[in-house]
């Protein structure tokens, strides 16, 4: 299996923030959602991947090119859009399309026209007059119309209204029809990530808290409701991440869930009333909160 992205032991430190020992692999043809709160280091990872920031240590490889040395060749294969990326206000979308087309030989004009229509954009409109949603869609159009092998999208859905968010996610999902194309996108909206990702990576305070494929990730977390008397041994169970008590009702959140766990809890005197799967947002908040406590 070839990888689209490989980060090995990547470190970067600046002004009170440190990205520490990042090991991350994105197999080709997969979508990875990078989840983290603001300031977790998501944008820094994207900039390192684009060769715009040189890491203090570790190795970075994108589309088979070592970064930042191979950035020119790598960037020919990458479509990159970030939340802080703006287009030239006084120029039209057409002008930007022509600029990008003159750089990339594989620019697909009919597809660009199709995207224009689909995103409800006007090519002759100056960028200065675009709304945030239109700007994001314009950036996405400029990336998608040249069929990049890897899409790096830093917070593409942040600040979008539900309709625009739906259009953007749909367009990203469509890219995945092509097995050779990979996507890494970041968001602090876990619902977006859950909707389209194959892989999920949690980033917190410059560290990767978890990286897994979505299904086994969701499969490994459970919310267990039980009743009984509280004992300290319950908190000492290795899988335990969060405990909430309300009288005799106890809510437990566990990772690496396995059927033997319920038996173990029963042995500790708890009567289990429900074992539920958790959604990603719940998992995210729980794991971040657990990380804070540590």
């Amino acid at each position: 299996m070839t990888t689209a992205i490989t980060l090995a032991g990547v470190r970067k430190e600046y002004g009170g923030f440190a990205l520490q020992d990042i090991d991350l692999e994105l197999p080709a043809g997969q979508v990875m959602g990078l989840v983290g709160v603001n300031g977790a280091g998501k944008s820094t990872i994207f900039r390192i991947l684009m060769g715009l920031i040189k890491p203090d240590g570790g190795q970075v490889e994108v589309c088979g090119y070592r970064m930042p040395q191979g950035q020119v060749a790598a960037k020919r294969e990458i479509g990159y859009a970030s939340d802080d990326m703006r287009l030239y206000k006084g120029k039209s979308l057409r002008w930007h399309m022509d600029l990008v087309r003159s750089v990339y030989l594989d620019w697909n004009e009919p597809y660009a026209a199709q995207l224009l229509k689909r995103f409800d954009l006007r090519a002759d409109q100056a960028m200065g007059g675009l709304s945030h949603g239109q700007r994001v869609k314009a950036l996405l159009l400029l990336s998608l119309a040249r069929h990049p092998k890897l899409l790096l999208l830093d917070e593409p859905t942040t600040g979008l209204d539900p309709v625009a968010r739906g259009e953007v996610l749909e367009a990203i999902a469509e890219v995945l029809g092509d097995e050779n194309r990979s996507v890494l996108f970041s968001s602090h909206n876990t619902r977006d990530v859950e909707q389209i990702s194959d892989y999920i990576a949690f980033l917190h305070r410059g560290r990767l808290v978890a990286v897994k494929d979505k299904e086994s990730f969701l499969e490994s977390w459970r919310r267990i409701l039980c009743q009984g008397e509280w004992r300290d041994e319950i908190a000492a169970v290795p899988e335990m991440v969060s405990v909430r008590r309300n009288g005799s009702v106890i809510e437990l959140k566990v990772r690496s869930f396995h059927p033997g766990l319920t038996a173990r809890l029963q042995q500790l005197g708890l009567a289990i009333s429900a074992v539920d799967r958790m959604d990603l947002e719940d998992i995210f908040v729980t794991s971040i909160a657990a990380g804070e406590r540590q």
Binding site: M50, L52, Q71, K75, R76, M85, R86, L87, K89, V100
Partner: peptide, 15 residues
């Protein structure tokens, strides 16, 4: 200031 540099840097160029 207008954050167009990230766009330029997304093109296949070196700094």
């Amino acid at each position: 200031k207008e954050s167009t540099l990230p766009f330029v840097m997304s093109l296949p160029v070196t700094a």
